[in-house]
Amino acid sequence: MEAFVYTALPVRVIFGAGTLTRTGEELATLGCGRALVLSTPEQEEAAHALKERLGSTCVAVFTQAAMHTPVEVTARALERLKVAGADCLVALGGGSAIGLAKALALRTGLPQIAIPTTYAGSEATPILGQTDSGVKTTQRTPDVLPEVIIYDVDLTLTLPPLLSATSGMNAIAHAVEALYARDANPVISLLAEQGITALARALPRIVSNPGDIDARSDALFGAWACGTCLGAVGMSVHHKLCHTLGGSFDLPHAPTHAVLLPHAVAYNAGHAPDAMVRIARALSSDSAAHGLYRLARSLGVPAGLKELGMPEAGLDDAVRLAVAAPYWNPRPIEAAGIRRLLDNAFHGRSPATV
C-alpha cells in the first residue's frame, strides 16, 4: 500500500424516502429558527411548499437561483437574506440552488441544509463555482460545505428522464476525475468506482421507467458517492473545460458534462492506465472512454456541444481560456490536443485519442 493523505469532510447525511419531513428537526439541531429557502424559478412551488411545512421556522423564500451562480444573483439573494434576518440557509434543488446557498454561506458564515433533487453532487463538496462578467472561477473552502444534506429519494421521482440522465453523467464525471486526481487515495478510489457502478446501472432503468424507486435510490446514492469524491480530491481537464464552456458560453451545466466526459477521458487515457481500468470495470466495458460514450448514447443525452448551443467560432476562445489557467491533469495540457478534443465533442464524434 502506497502512502496517502485523506481528509474526511464533516457533513451529516440523511438518506432515505420521505426524509424531507426531517428538515425542521435538523434546523432545530443546528440551533436555527429563521431559515431562508432557496430554489430556482422552476421549483418555486416546491420551495413555497417547504416554507409552509416549516411554518414560522422559515422567514423568507428566494427562487431566482441560476446556473453557474452569477454574482449578481447572489447579491440580490444576500439583500433578501438581510431584510428577512435569516440565520440559516435551506437549498432545495440542484446545483444552481445549492451553489447559491454556498455563495451566501461564504459571505455570511451561516449554516446550510442542502436538499438535492438532482444527481449533481454539489451538496457533498466544499467547492464553489461563481460567474462574474462571463468568467467562471472556482474555490475550495470548508466555509461553503453544507452542515446537513437531506437526500429524499421521493423528490427525484419527478425528475424527467433526460434531466436524470445528464445529471447522472455529471455525477459520474466527478468520480472519473477523482480516479486520476493528483491527490487520489485508496479510500476515494473505492468510493469512486462504487459511485460510477451505481449510476451506470441505475440510469438506463430510470430512462426506461422513471418511477423505478429502487433505481432512483441507487442513482441518488451514486450521486452522493461521486459528489463526495469531488469534494475530497482535485479536478482535472474535464472540469476545467466544463467550467470554461459554462461560464463563458452559458452552456447548460449537466449536459455539457455529459457531452465532454468521454472525450476528456480519451485525452487522458494513455496517462492514467490504472484509472482507465477501474472506470471500464465500473461500466462493464472494455474501454473507459467508449464505455462512457455508449452509456451517454443509450440514455439519449445530446451527442455534441453543437446541440447545446456552442458556437463553433468560440472553440478557439475556449481553448485559450482553458489553457491559460489549467487545472492539474495527468497529461500535460496542450492547446492542439485540447482543440481536437473540443472539435470531437462539438460534432458528437466517438471519442478518440488526441
Rank of each mutant, 00 (worst) to 15 (best):
A66R: 12
I196P: 11
A266G: 11
G231A: 13
A303M: 14
L199C: 08
G109H: 06
T74E: 09
P204N: 07
P10C: 05
T57L: 14
P210T: 07
G304Q: 12
A84D: 09
S39R: 10
H238Q: 05
A192G: 12
P160E: 04
G168D: 03
A254G: 15
I115M: 09
G109P: 06
H290S: 12
I206P: 14
A75N: 09
V90L: 01
L241C: 00
S122L: 02
L162W: 09
T117N: 07
A101C: 02
P351R: 02
S208V: 12
E312C: 08
A272P: 01
G231K: 06
D87K: 09
E2L: 15
K51A: 15
I279T: 07
T23F: 05
L81H: 08
A269S: 13
P273Q: 08
P326I: 00
D87T: 11
A75P: 14
D87F: 08
V233C: 12
M310G: 14
E2S: 10
V259N: 08
A66N: 01
N344M: 11
E334D: 05
G222E: 13
L245Y: 04
K240D: 00
A91M: 11
L190Y: 08
A219C: 01
S208M: 05
S217F: 12
A60E: 11
K240L: 00
A272D: 09
K240E: 02
R76V: 02
L190V: 12
